[in-house]
């Protein structure tokens, strides 16, 4: 299919290739003959390995996207950022408190954010990065956690930030604090863990394990399905 299709020029790290217009950036690079090692992971928009910066000829604007999710455009100049050395703090989650001060001591640079919004423009997940950084500056862990939830840690925001913020690392700290300390606990979960530890289901499971194929099949077919 790709062979009869219209070819368009793109520039991979400055070098011109003519590629089928329907391909994603990632597939276009492979079509051009590249064997990818860096800048590729899940190929499905989940891992953030394929962060890409591009510009279109005669357009001064910089654009950002995931190579596995973005279709090529004519005269596209591509650069990839497969790795960005943003700061990451090390911490023991069990020793932290879910309070604003934790964000500020773990990542003092949080408070340096200028609110310029460059990060938001760069985010391929279309997250309001500036917004979650503002929430981080207010110490609102719950809001940071929820606003940043869809972050795939691609690093594009950090790559663009004039204040050198590691936004996505601040965000995961907030999410972990929220998940561990602030999210309401599930009562039925704790109960069930205890029941299992006390051996409540052991006999029943032993019994199932001892059934022969036909008996097991019968039990399976007779299951009541919750509506």
């Amino acid at each position: 299919m790709a062979n009869q299709e219209e070819l368009i020029p793109i520039y991979i790290m400055g070098k011109r290739y003519d590629v089928p217009a329907s391909l994603t950036i990632m597939k276009a690079m492979e079509w051009a003959g590249y064997t990818l090692v860096r800048g590729v992971g899940c190929r499905g928009g989940f891992c953030g390995a394929c962060a890409t910066v591009y510009r279109i000829k005669d357009d001064p604007k910089l654009y950002f996207g995931l190579a596995c999710q973005t279709v090529v455009k004519p005269e596209m100049y591509l650069g990839q950022i497969p790795f960005f050395p943003a700061k990451r703090a090390s911490y023991d989650i069990t020793k932290l408190e879910p309070i604003a001060a934790t964000l500020f001591t773990t990542y003092p640079e949080t408070l340096r954010c200028l609110g310029c919004g460059t990060c938001t423009k760069a985010c391929p997940q279309e997250l309001n990065v500036k917004g979650y950084m503002a929430a981080a500056m207010r110490g609102d862990i719950t809001l940071v956690a929820n606003m940043s939830f869809d972050c795939i840690m691609c690093g594009l925001c950090a790559a663009r930030c004039p204040a050198e913020e590691p936004q996505y690392n601040i965000a995961i700290l907030a999410r972990r604090l929220y998940g561990r300390y602030l999210a309401p606990r599930s009562p039925h979960l704790a109960e069930r863990v205890e029941e299992i530890q006390s051996g409540k289901f052991d006999a029943e499971i032993q019994n199932l394990k001892s059934l022969d194929f036909n008996a097991l099949k019968e039990r399976y077919s007779a299951r009541e399905i919750e509506a």
Binding site: R175, R176, Y178, G179, R180, A183, S186, L189, A190, V193
Partner: peptide
């Protein structure tokens, strides 16, 4: 429960 303690947001 372990994942929750690590901070997973279910």
């Amino acid at each position: 429960a372990w994942l929750e303690q690590l901070g997973v947001m279910f």
